[in-house]
Design a protein around this nucleic acid. Sequence first.
DNA 1: GAGAGACTACTCGGATACAGTCTGTCCGAGTAAATCCGG
DNA 2: CCGGATTTACTCGGACAGACTGTATCCGAGTAGTCTCTC
Lengths: 162, 162
Amino acid sequence: MILKSQVEWALHCCAILSGLPEGRYLSTKALAELHGLPKEYLSKALQGLSQAGLVDTTLGPSGGYRLAKPPEQVTFLDIVEAVEGKTRTFVCNNIRANNPCVPENYCYSGSCAVARIMWAADEAWRDKLRSVTLSDLGRMLVQETPPALWKDTFDWVLDRAG
Amino acid sequence: MILKSQVEWALHCCAILSGLPEGRYLSTKALAELHGLPKEYLSKALQGLSQAGLVDTTLGPSGGYRLAKPPEQVTFLDIVEAVEGKTRTFVCNNIRANNPCVPENYCYSGSCAVARIMWAADEAWRDKLRSVTLSDLGRMLVQETPPALWKDTFDWVLDRAG
DNA sequence: GAGAGACTACTCGGATACAGTCTGTCCGAGTAAATCCGG
DNA sequence: CCGGATTTACTCGGACAGACTGTATCCGAGTAGTCTCTC
């Protein structure tokens, strides 16, 4: 069980988008070049973000993506779920019902204990992702990137942001 | 990102094995029948448990599996990792290094912030799984299964346990 | 009745097959800005 | 100089292909009990 690489891409793209000045858009092409990714496939991840309402898009030249909400309102969970889907990581097929000792027409009430435990762990994972926003990520990135590199990168980005 | 169904199977099988009297073994065939699963494929999951040292096996007639440790020492994480592997759910491909603004031969120190956050969530998930043992599961199952069904099931099991 | 050999039932591992998902590419339709062109 | 038509650059969506993983089946090798057969 490994998350798709699109999740990583989407998170890094959102980190860049959250540093964009108000009203500017950044194209898939620029985001792909900046991260060394295939443009066409990256666009699938960005489409996911768009369908989830996390980013706005504009068509035409100087079009592209921008965050639809302030960075402090976008959580890691939002982005992960936009790309990976909202389905739980554990699906219960209720195999206890196949027990040959179970009387016919017996109806189980409630979900089985195994599933409840797995779902609780899933929730712990989601809680952790929900607790971190893009502005948190921004602060961490500023702190750990050399100022010169940070400036160069955003000069590069702003040069391409319509 | 969804866990394989083998995880569910392994958990239910361990739940049964943890109710087995000391020294008895239960075969793949019995476990497969009890849960309505394909015997051959279920054996892959049980092989995983065996390789992880969670269960002991015996060959020959009246052979099969039994827990290698007392139920209170086997956690959900042990079982999930035995089947699903120990690799983290998020892999960092360090795509920040592809930034065209990064000077040549620049060497990043430490892992990137995105990965650290994702790994922290992964750890929260694993912590939750580590906190539940097979004996916890057993107590929950006893509590929520009708006593008659519980008895019938273990009569059925003991009838087939060598 | 005892011991040796054959038999049986099981685990284990490898080989194989099929389906679904992940990764990646390509192309056409639609849109908005920029450019061009005629008045 | 101005307004409409054309061009351009981009998003969006679908179609498609290849690789990998998950699911499932089958079979042979090895092992430990059981049965049989001989003495």
